[in-house]
Write a protein that binds this DNA or RNA. Structure first.
Lengths: 152, 152
DNA sequence: TATTGTTATACTCTATAACTATA
DNA sequence: TATAGTTATAGAGTATAACAATA
């Protein structure tokens, strides 16, 4: 047994520290829950946006996700390689790709999103109902305050 | 004025989304507050750990920060170049470097930490006192649950 | 043989610049 | 000339492997 070098209190009480580690736990739980479905949390988000308001060009979807178009290319590449989405040129503007979610993509999204929700539930399990509600309200407020409209 | 492409509700309500964006705001406010002092949030954390329990070897400090020794080298390099810390070989074990915080380092830490606390205050300003307290309690619980002891 | 500090290397994530084809 | 998709590239941040000095 070692001395168990942990974070000193002056570090562990900082909001930045708390955020980072809470988020790290959520990320781990979510990744674990999504693994059986073969998609990452980001890919689920991309699928959700594409399925939510079709038909969308890659760039429109990227804007809604708050990522730039070059990153979107890689996401769509990966999802298309697994048959979850399909690109097709927009007849009205041949510079654009319309990205459609396939039936398989919708089914994957449905299952993966259920797994993700369950991971959230497990993450929040150690909190009382009222504390969990307060957390969600606080985060909602803090996430939308002034600053840049950075997203995803 | 454009159509203001924002995140669709199915994304903006996800806990991962809320965490990411709340943290992004805190990071921005903190970076802004620290800029005049010439140190990053991570460097302040390193200084705080080194000042909190001296004398410490680089590796001991790294363990407490939850980073590995190779990253610690770079942090100490940067802080030493600005005269905020000083390395000296440990007489009792010449493989080790004892890293001491200089007077200038302590003064910088004191001022930077005050600025960081003020940034936290501004970050939490849109919340009521009780909601802010609930947030801190919730994060403290969520940050220490099971999982890996990943830190910093 | 193991450990400390170090360097070099690789890998992820993301952002920027430049190219193409269309408009 | 401007825009959509694409590619190549570069920059953080972090992790792994190997090496020299020391134990």
């Amino acid at each position: 047994m070692s001395t168990e070098d942990g974070p000193p209190p002056e570090l562990a009480e900082r909001l930045g520290y708390l955020f980072k580690h809470a988020q790290s736990r959520l990320t781990a739980l979510t990744a674990e829950a999504l693994a059986p479905h073969g998609v990452s949390a980001r890919e689920v988000a991309v699928l959700a946006v594409l399925a939510g308001a079709e038909p969308a060009s890659q760039q429109q979807a990227a804007r809604r996700l708050g990522i730039d178009r070059t990153s979107m290319v890689a996401f769509v590449d990966a999802l298309e390689a697994r048959g979850l989405v399909a690109r097709s040129p927009d007849p009205d503007d041949r510079r654009r790709n319309v990205v459609a979610v396939t039936a398989k993509g919708r089914e994957t999204l449905r299952r993966a999103d259920r797994a993700r929700t369950e991971a959230e539930r497990r993450f929040l399990a150690p909190l009382s109902r009222s504390t969990a509600d307060a957390l969600r309200r606080a985060l909602t407020t803090l996430a939308r305050e002034p600053g840049r409209p950075e997203r995803l």
